[in-house]
Simulated scan of single mutants.
Amino acid sequence: MKKQLGILTVISLLCSACATDGTLATGGNTQATTAQQLGVTAIKIAINAKCTTEINNQPAWQIVSRTMTAEQQQTVQSNVCGCVSDKALENITAVDLATAAIDPTARAKIVSHAVTRTLNQCVAETLKR
């Protein structure tokens, strides 16, 4: 609960960085840039958590991970979910970020869609390494 409250607080800061046209404020305003960075960081954390859950729920991962050490499992999950966290942001608009700050249901849907759109791509990239 405290984690969700912390994430909501950080995302709320992001709302103060939104311009009236629905885009994130940029430019010389350091406070807006910091709020934007905090909001993106909060979304990345939520995406990473969702990604880890999705991976652990996959039957294929459950089978393959049995042959790995705990360190290998952690490395693969970190690589895949790091990729998902970075690429998923390409699918999240400033409006989505603002909506996520005030609506927990929307936040869950936004994060879920972002993870869904990027997870398979990142698994494939990780396996190519």
Score class of each variant (00 low, 15 high):
L127Q: 13
R107Y: 04
I43V: 04
I7F: 07
P104D: 09
V10H: 11
I11M: 15
G28V: 05
V64A: 13
T53F: 03
Q58V: 05
T93P: 06
T67S: 05
D21Q: 08
M1E: 12
A94R: 06
T69L: 03
L5T: 11
D21M: 02
L97Y: 13
S112W: 02
V76K: 09
V10E: 12
A108C: 06
I7G: 01
C83R: 04
A88V: 02
Q36S: 13
L127E: 07
L119G: 01
A19W: 04
I43D: 00
Q72F: 04
T93C: 02
I63D: 07
T118N: 10
Q62N: 09
I63H: 07
V80W: 03
Q77N: 11
A49Q: 14
L24N: 01
T116D: 09
W61I: 06
T26D: 08
P59M: 04
D103K: 15
N56Y: 03
L13S: 13
G22F: 09
W61P: 02
D21A: 04
Q73G: 04
V10D: 10
Q73T: 05
A46W: 02
T69S: 13
L97R: 15
G39C: 10
T26F: 05
S16C: 11
A88Q: 02
P104W: 11
V123R: 09
T69H: 03
D21V: 01
E54R: 00
A60H: 05
T41I: 09
K128F: 07
T53P: 02
D103R: 15
I7K: 03
C15M: 10
D86I: 11
I110E: 01
V10R: 15
